[in-house]
Amino acid sequence: MRRPTILTVDDDPMVSAAIVRDLRSRYGADYRIVRTTSGAEALRILAELALRDQPVALIAADQRMPRMTGIDMLEQARNHAPKAKYLLLTAYADTDVAIKAINDIGLDYYLLKPWDPPEDRLFPVIDDLLSDWRWANPDTTSDVRVIGYRWSDRSYDVKTFLARNHVPYRWFDIERDAEAERLRLLAETP
């Protein structure tokens, strides 16, 4: 299995660099750490990862960002990375919003900034979230995904080609599988 992704979203360059530094030092060997500076950029990256069948283990988003709050971004991220764990980074004044988000969008945890020292405040939280994610998402092979119509000649040709060449694939019927529809919508999003 490819290394799962941890995505960070924070518009403050100093905070963004700090969380990426801390995450890479502890989790860089096992996870791909991706840094973004806006909710829109994060959603674009999540759509690409979903289309490439790249697993997303954790999304850590700042609450206060221009144009899109962290909670709004995490709510939209459910379409792209439904199995990921969601962590909201917030200031003390935003704790009521974070607590409400636990019920409203299924937020897994919120963490107050600053998190220094990370060994005491950041890593135990991330360790727990990643442990839960790994337990719920055991390693799977990275098969080719084929999305099509059951009675389509073209779909049949693609499946036959893959089978004859011993290429493992997963079939998604566009008329029956919700995952096929989700992937189709992601592929059509600009």
Rank of each mutant, 00 (worst) to 15 (best):
L43F: 03
R182Y: 11
T141K: 08
L43V: 02
K85D: 01
A180V: 06
V20Q: 04
F161E: 09
S38P: 05
L89F: 08
D53T: 04
D96P: 05
A91R: 07
T141L: 13
E175M: 11
I6V: 13
T37K: 05
M73G: 02
L111S: 12
A163T: 09
I105H: 05
F172C: 10
D96L: 06
R184E: 14
L186R: 05
W135S: 12
L111G: 11
I19T: 05
E75F: 09
R44I: 04
E188W: 07
A47N: 10
W171Y: 09
K83R: 14
T69H: 01
A91M: 13
Y31Q: 02
R26D: 04
R176H: 11
N103C: 07
Q76F: 06
D53P: 00
Q63Y: 12
I126C: 07
A187F: 07
P114E: 14
L122C: 12
A29W: 00
G148M: 12
D153F: 11
D108H: 15
T140I: 07
D104F: 01
R176C: 12
A84H: 02
H166L: 11
L74S: 01
D12F: 09
L51P: 00
K100D: 14
D153E: 15
G148S: 09
L107I: 08
R3D: 09
D53E: 11
W135K: 15
D127G: 04
V144C: 04
D127A: 06
R164I: 02
Q76I: 10
A178Y: 09
R2K: 12
R78L: 13
T69G: 10
L130Y: 03
K100F: 10
A187Y: 12
L186P: 02
T189Q: 14
E119G: 15
L58H: 00
E119W: 10
R52N: 10
A178D: 14
L7H: 03
T95A: 11
A47W: 03
D177I: 02
L111W: 08
P168M: 02
V20H: 06
R32P: 01
A57N: 01
K100S: 13
R52T: 13
L122M: 15
A93N: 09
E48D: 11
R145W: 06
D128R: 15
D153L: 13
V97I: 14
L58G: 05
R24V: 02
A61M: 04
L112W: 08
A178E: 13
V20G: 07
R154V: 14
V34Y: 00
R35T: 08
D94I: 06
K159V: 06
L88N: 01
G148L: 06
A81F: 12
K159H: 08
D108N: 14
D128T: 15
E48G: 09
T36C: 02
R145F: 10
T8S: 12
E179S: 11
Y156M: 09
L49H: 03
R121K: 15
